[in-house]
C-alpha cells in the first residue's frame, strides 16, 4: 500500500526529470526525488538504477572466436511509477539489459540497484527470489512462455506459491482475480496453453508476472509476436494495469509506434550503448542522434518507401 502511494509521486517526478534531454549513458538522478521511498530504502524516485553495466558474449572457438559487446557501459535510471521504453534494432543489447535486470544473465561489470537494494551480480537462489518480488518479466514468445503441459492456473499459482504463503483455496481465488484483471475468465485457469490464443497466452503471462506483486515489470518485446489488433488490446491492458497498480514498466521493443502508445520516456540503444534518451515525443519527433533518425525513418508507415542500403546508412551514422 505504502509503496503504491510513493509510486505515484515517483512517477510524476520521473516524468519531470525525464523531460530534460540526456545522451550516451549519462543516467541522471531521475529528477528531484522529493519523497524517497522509506521502507525499501529506495534512493530518490528511482526504482531502477543501473551504472556502468557491461556484458560481453564470446562466440566461437579458436580462430573463429569473436566477442560481442552486448552492453557497453550502460547507465540508466527508471523513476518509480514511470514507463521507460528501450528501443533499438536486434542485437543492440536491449534484451540483454532486461535479462540482467531480472537476474537471468550475469553482468561482467557494473551495478544494478533495484528498489534501493544493490543486487548481486551472480545471485543465489534466495536473492533471486527476493529480487523476483520487486521485478518480474514478460517474455516475447507467447508460445514458449507457458509450459504446454500445465494449465494457465498452475502457471500463475506457481509464482503465487513461490512468493506468498497462500492456502489452496486462497491461491485459487487469487488466480481467478488475476485472470480477471488481465481480461480473462476464471474458467481459463483450467486451460492448457494450447487451448488459448496468442493474446490470451500473453495475458496469462502478464497475470503470472503480477502474481508476485512486483514493483517493476520488464516487458521484453511482450507484444511483438501478436497481431496488431490484439497488440492494441494488450497494450491498453498493460496501461490500465500500470495505472491501477502504480507499476514501473521497462518496455523493451523495436516497434516505435508501440513506444508512442505506452511510454512517456524512451532510451535508444545501439550496439550495447545508449545513444539517446528523452521524452518520447521529443526523441521521436525531433531525434538528435543520427541513429535514432535512421531508426525512425526505417519504421514502416503509410506512404513509406523502404530505405535501401541500410548498411550504408549505418556506416554514415558511424562516421
Amino acid at each position: 500500500m505504502n509503496d503504491d502511494v510513493k509510486g505515484t509521486d515517483g512517477g510524476v517526478i520521473g516524468r519531470a526529470g525525464g523531460g530534460s534531454r540526456r545522451t550516451a549513458g549519462a543516467g541522471g538522478s531521475g529528477g528531484s526525488g522529493a519523497k524517497g521511498p522509506g521502507g525499501a530504502g529506495g534512493s530518490g524516485g528511482n526504482v531502477i538504477e543501473i551504472s556502468g553495466l557491461c556484458k560481453r558474449f564470446v562466440t566461437g572457438r579458436g580462430s573463429g572466436r569473436r566477442t560481442v559487446d552486448a552492453l557497453d557501459d550502460v547507465s540508466l535510471t527508471v523513476a518509480d511509477g514511470s514507463c521507460l521504453a528501450v528501443v533499438g534494432e536486434s542485437g543492440s543489447g536491449k534484451s540483454t539489459l532486461a535479462r540482467i535486470l531480472v537476474g537471468l544473465e550475469a553482468a561482467d561489470a557494473g551495478e544494478v540497484v533495484l528498489a534501493g537494494r544493490p543486487v548481486a551480480r551472480r545471485p543465489r537462489r534466495a536473492e533471486r527470489r527476493a529480487r523476483a518480488r520487486d521485478i518480474q518479466m514478460v517474455f516475447q514468445d507467447p508460445n514458449g512462455s507457458l509450459n504446454r503441459r500445465r494449465t494457465a492456473g498452475s502457471a500463475i499459482s506457481e509464482v503465487l506459491a513461490a512468493h506468498h504463503r497462500v492456502t489452496g483455496a486462497e491461491a485459487r481465488r487469487r488466480v481467478e482475480e488475476l485472470l480477471e484483471q488481465v481480461g480473462l475468465r476464471p474458467a481459463h485457469a483450467r486451460s492448457l496453453p494450447g487451448e488459448l490464443s496468442g493474446g490470451q497466452r500473453q495475458r496469462v503471462a502478464i497475470a503470472r508476472a503480477l502474481a508476485a506483486e512486483p514493483r517493476v515489470l520488464v516487458l521484453d518485446e511482450a507484444v511483438a509476436a501478436l497481431d496488431v489488433s490484439v497488440q492494441a488490446q494488450v497494450l491498453n491492458l498493460l496501461s490500465e494495469i500500470r495505472r491501477d497498480r502504480r507499476l514501473t514498466y521497462l518496455f523493451i521493443t523495436h516497434d516505435l509506434s508501440v513506444v508512442r502508445q505506452v511510454s512517456e520516456e524512451v532510451v535508444v540503444m545501439r550496439q550495447g550503448r545508449i545513444v539517446e534518451r528523452g521524452s518520447t515525443t521529443q526523441v521521436l519527433d525531433d531525434p538528435q542522434h543520427p541513429y535514432t533518425r535512421l531508426l525512425r525513418d526505417s519504421a514502416p508507415r503509410p506512404g513509406w518507401r523502404p530505405v535501401r542500403a541500410i548498411g550504408r546508412d549505418a556506416a554514415e551514422v558511424e562516421a
Binding site: 537471468l104 537462489r125 518480474q136 509450459n147 504446454r148 513461490a162
Partner: peptide
C-alpha cells in the same frame, strides 16, 4: 524456452524447475 526462465527467475530451485517443468516435457 521462456517458461523455464520465468520459473527460474522466481528463485525456484533447480530440482523444482527440472522436476516440474523440464521432466514432464
Amino acid at each position: 524456452l521462456p517458461y523455464v526462465q520465468a520459473a527460474e527467475l522466481q528463485g525456484l530451485s533447480g530440482v523444482t524447475v527440472s522436476g516440474r517443468h523440464l521432466l514432464p516435457n
